[in-house]
Each structure stands twice: as structure tokens, then as C-alpha cells.
Design a protein around this nucleic acid. Structure first.
Lengths: 147, 147
DNA sequence: ACGTATTAGTTTGAAATGTAACTAAATTGA
DNA sequence: TCAATTTAGTTACATTTCAAACTAATACGT
């Protein structure tokens, strides 16, 4: 029997601790500078990174519940970071698109994210970073954009 | 400039997705079988893994806020999984100790956790698993028990 | 010794989340 | 053609979380 199994290394636990540590730190940036919530930042980054899309697509890509997205979209609209346009061919869908202002915030936050990411990766070797990336993406069920 | 930086691989994001995926899956076990919430499972596992301790210690070790621990302890007490004993030398502290029943649940869940962990690790090579473990623990600021 | 400051833990009220019910638009099929 | 179903998104309510105020016990400084 595995009486010596150490729960500290239990992946769901260790991964959560690691994710929380990084997320909380990065939160200071988007929350501190733009008063955004986590889901708002996520919606913003999906629209900035992949271009205009519907809320449904954001839900799928970001694995977010539609109510969360719905509220984040409303908040971002209030901040004038995005606009909605009901699609001609099916008016149930609304295409979400970042405004100039939204794009500006996105690119600023993207730069911060890049710097942040580089800082974290600097604490490991290149090989470690590659393996970490690969394993984490696989566990998350995310696709790597560079195959 | 880093216009090609891919936010999908951004560590706070990818790690959160991975942690969520695993945590949600494991949640089925402790929630489904024992109706426990995440913080309750965490408190249980700290007490089971490291022996009796105060709520304060659990907060520190598990990086949990004291209000969350306070409620989880109350819930576990209701379920008769633990008992509290005010310490003689300072009656502000209460030592938390698992009951027979609590220990039973712990060891059952620990076995499930072990099997679950093994299953996840089976999707990678031994080297990958080692690197992943090391990096994640370092990011999380967790100590490895076997140095 | 005794007023002030700390500390462990609980409670309370506000914000955020998840579930389920709801609205409006479009599709199906009899 | 029009009732029944499906789909995108919102709203309402119940649960969870977070922050700040609170209680009880101890330590500190004079």
C-alpha cells in the first residue's frame, strides 16, 4: 500500500497552489491598473489575441461559464473596452469587438504578461520551461499554437 | 517587441486551466462520496498527512484564509470527522484532531488521490513528471518533503 | 498591576460565483 | 404554417468567498 504517498506533491493540489501564486501576482497588474476582474481580463485577452468573436466562442475557448462571460462582457462594455454587434444572419449572436481603447489596454497588458512570463521562466532552465509548458498544456487540454 | 507572444501559453493562464481540470475531476470523488467541499478536503488532508495541529497552522501550510478554515473546521466537526481541544497553555489555540471516522475517510481519500495522481503521471514520461513536479513546487513555493 | 496591543478564531455584510429559470431568435417537422 | 425544440445570452436566487469588524485570551510596557 501507498502509505508514504505525499499529498504535498499531489498534482491537483500542487498545481492549484502554483496557479494561485502566479494568478494572484498577475492580478495586481490588471486589477491595480485597470480595475478589472479576472474574467474581464480573460475575455479581453481572448478578443485581443484571436480577434472579434461571440460570447459563445469565448466560453468554449476559455472554458468559462456563459453567465461569467455575460457579466464580464457587460463590465467591459461599461468601461468602453468593447462593442457588441448583433449578427445579420442570426440575431441571437453578437459579435464582440474591442474598441481602440480596449485594444490599447490589451496591448499594454499583453506586454506586462510577456514580461511577467519571462520573469517566471527565468527561474528555470530552458529545458525545464519546455517540459513544464508541454505537460501543463496537455493536462489542461490546450493546444499549442506552434505544433 | 513581442507581438507574437502567445497568451495561451501564459503560465498563470495555462497553469490555472490545468489546475482547474484536475481539481474538478478529483472533486467528483470527495464531493460525490462524502459531500465535502474543497476546503474541507484540504483541511482533512493536512490533519491526516501531518497530524493534529491548530487552525492557524493549517492556514499557513495550506495558504488558506482563516475564515475559510474556520468554516471548513466547523463543517468537519459537524460531520464528526474531527474534534477540537483548547490548549492548556494558551486557550486561544485549539488543537484539531481527526476522529476514527475522519481518519478512515482520510485514508480512503488518500488512496484515491494516489491512484488519481498515478493516472495523471502515466500520461508523461518519468523525466517529464520529475521536471513538472520540481517546477510546480518551486512556483508554488512548496517544500519537497523528500530532499 | 493594569491599560494597550497582539493573537486565534468567529461573525457579519458585500461582492462573486454557480445553478436554474427565463427571454428572444431561429430551426424542425407534421 | 405554426406548435415544439434548440440555441445565445440574461436574470434571479442560493451558495461561496473576501474583507473588515468583532470576541476572547494572552502578552507587553510602564
Amino acid at each position: 500500500m501507498a502509505d508514504d504517498f505525499d499529498l504535498t506533491g499531489f498534482l491537483p493540489y500542487a498545481l492549484t497552489q502554483a496557479a494561485d501564486a502566479l494568478s494572484l501576482e498577475f492580478q495586481n497588474i490588471y486589477k491595480g491598473q485597470y480595475g478589472m476582474l479576472r474574467t474581464e481580463w480573460r475575455v479581453l485577452f481572448h478578443l485581443g489575441q484571436y480577434g472579434p468573436m461571440t460570447a459563445k466562442h469565448i466560453c468554449e475557448r476559455g472554458r468559462l461559464h456563459k453567465t461569467k462571460v455575460s457579466r464580464a462582457v457587460a463590465a467591459l462594455e461599461d468601461k468602453r473596452y468593447l462593442t457588441r454587434t448583433a449578427l445579420e444572419f442570426d440575431r441571437r449572436h453578437e459579435e464582440l469587438q474591442l474598441t481602440k481603447s480596449g485594444l490599447g489596454v490589451f496591448s499594454s497588458l499583453k506586454a506586462e504578461a510577456h514580461a511577467f512570463d519571462a520573469r517566471v521562466r527565468a527561474t528555470m532552465t530552458e529545458d525545464e520551461a519546455k517540459v513544464l509548458q508541454r505537460c501543463v498544456m496537455r493536462i489542461a487540454g490546450l493546444e499549442t499554437t506552434s505544433p
